[in-house]
Design a protein around this nucleic acid. Structure first.
Length: 423
RNA sequence: AGAGAGGUGGCCGAGCGGUCGAAGGCGCACGCCUGGAAAGUGUGUAUCCGUCAAAAGCGGAUCGAGGGUUCGAAUCCCUUCCUCUCUGCCA
């Protein structure tokens, strides 16, 4: 959530930056400033009346002790009048504040200066590419056919017990999933991330804290009876661990990781894009979250990018890194790098990780601050990234490691799988 | 799910209608004492909002949350959430 005082100070800059998201924000920002002005003016008026009311109350107490009942009665009458006034102002304050908050909820984060303009994923900027695309002239099946051939994943069974987008992993397929989760968690904890196991259902406040609500309500599965949501990513419970906290400077930086299943309703996309593991309602992901001081957040973002790079390098998968353009940038993010693995059989790039800096956008909603040595309070910067999302990594491995007589397992995973080939 | 008890500052814990943002203790910070430390001792130690260029100061709000009674609520009433104990159910 943006902060009115910063909007005031950097209005023109914000308007320009939001143009990268193809948003004309001038009128909206003016509306924010007007509402904020109203809010503060109302607060000041209300405070004055309450101050007078408090003075009277104290006076009444003194009058009673002296036994001056008549004067006390007069004061009571005055106080009652003030109360009527304060009630009106107090309602106005609540109303204006609510209006301001609702407006702020509709405004996305300000893109970082390095974010390119653009309308869609076509305009994302490739900044890095590594790995060799294997020659699959001998054997070249897409992962959903490989999954069937080697009996690793059963989409029909998932369809029967749940519905489309809920795959069933079997045998070595299931074992490979477990191996990937363990391997990713190990890489993350070795890099200093603290491991968590988290609730998969969260309350409404958590949804607001990380920005899934009210913006992306339709993306989450809901359990209205208990007013809970299934998490679309571990980011939600992991970051919300620190909601409403005032940290000490020495507590920072904080680095967290967790494996969770993720649940996404993802309505509205059909065809080849969603075949096999490409898009699912339930999938596994290992997430990393960083909570840092503002001055360190872009350095940390680069560290996260390097961290994910190392993992993909170890898995020996061909990948590239994109800097997302304004039109493709997530609502809460200031700068996002997407990692994509090349799916040789599908002849397309598959997104497998998204690493973002939210600056203060989340921490402002979360009320997550730290106190420095001078006792001043600052919002922290929050960052997160997938490290990594499983299904498309699995797709990439199956497709890129296929041979005539089986699928090889990447070296680094063999200690986790206990086998080196799927035949 | 049923019955009971309770939610107060970083923590423990008093207060049960009138200068209560809240006694006392612990913890923490700084000072004194000490060769150094412990002990002892003194001082300080919540958050948010407004006013201000900013700080200080001043004003307002906050004792789980929301509402009510009252001139005045941590204290009384209602609603709600959470925790604990017992019973039930259960991996």
């Amino acid at each position: 959530m943006l902060q009115p005082h910063l909007i005031k100070a950097h209005k023109e800059q914000y308007i320009q930056a939001l143009k990268k998201r193809n948003i004309e924000a001038g009128a909206l920002l003016d509306k924010v400033l007007t509402l904020d002005e109203q809010r503060r003016a109302t607060q000041t008026q209300l405070d004055e009346i309450l101050a007078e009311s408090n003075r009277l109350s104290r006076a009444i107490s003194v009058l009673y002790k002296k036994g001056e009942a008549e004067q006390a009665a007069t004061a009571k009458e005055q106080s009652s009048q003030l109360k009527i006034q304060s009630k009106g102002l107090s309602e106005k304050l609540i109303q204006v504040s609510k209006e301001l908050e609702e407006l702020l909820y509709t405004l996305p984060n300000i893109p970082h200066e390095s974010v390119p303009s653009g309308k869609s994923d076509q305009d994302n900027e490739e900044i890095f590419r590594e790995g060799t695309i294997p020659d699959l002239s001998a054997s070249n099946l897409p992962h959903w056919e490989l999954a069937k051939k080697y009996d690793l994943i059963d989409f029909e069974l998932g369809n029967k017990i749940s519905g489309a987008g809920f795959p069933v992993y079997k045998g070595k397929g299931a074992r490979l999933q477990r191996a990937l989760i363990a391997y990713f968690l190990d890489k993350n904890t070795q890099a200093g991330y603290k491991e968590y196991e988290l609730p998969l259902l969260v309350n409404e406040a958590s949804g607001y804290g990380t920005g899934q609500l009210p913006d992306k309500e339709g993306q989450m599965y809901e359990i209205p009876k208990d007013n809970l949501y299934l998490i679309p990513t571990a980011e939600v419970p992991l970051t919300n661990l620190y909601r409403d906290q005032l940290l000490e400077e020495k507590d920072l930086p904080i680095a967290l990781t967790a494996y969770t299943p993720c649940f996404r309703r993802e309505a509205g996309s059909y065809g080849a894009d969603v075949r096999g593991l490409n898009r699912l309602h339930q999938f596994d992901k290992v997430e990393i979250v960083n909570i840092v001081k503002a001055e360190n957040s872009y350095g940390k973002l680069n560290e996260m990018v390097e961290h994910v790079k190392v993992i993909l390098r170890e898995l020996n998968l061909p990948f590239r890194i994109l800097r997302l353009c304004g039109g493709d940038l997530g609502f809460t993010s200031a700068l996002t790098y997407d990692f994509e693995v090349y799916s040789t059989s599908q002849e397309r790039w598959l997104e497998i990780s998204s690493v973002s800096n939210f600056e203060t956008f989340q921490s402002n909603r979360l009320k997550l601050r730290y106190r420095d040595k001078e006792n001043k309070k600052h919002l922290v910067h929050t960052l997160n990234g997938s490290s990594l999302a499983l299904p498309r990594v699995l797709a990439g491995i199956l497709e890129n490691y296929q041979t005539m007589d089986g699928i090889l397992i990447p070296e680094v995973l063999r200690p986790y799988t206990g086998f080196d080939k799927i035949v």
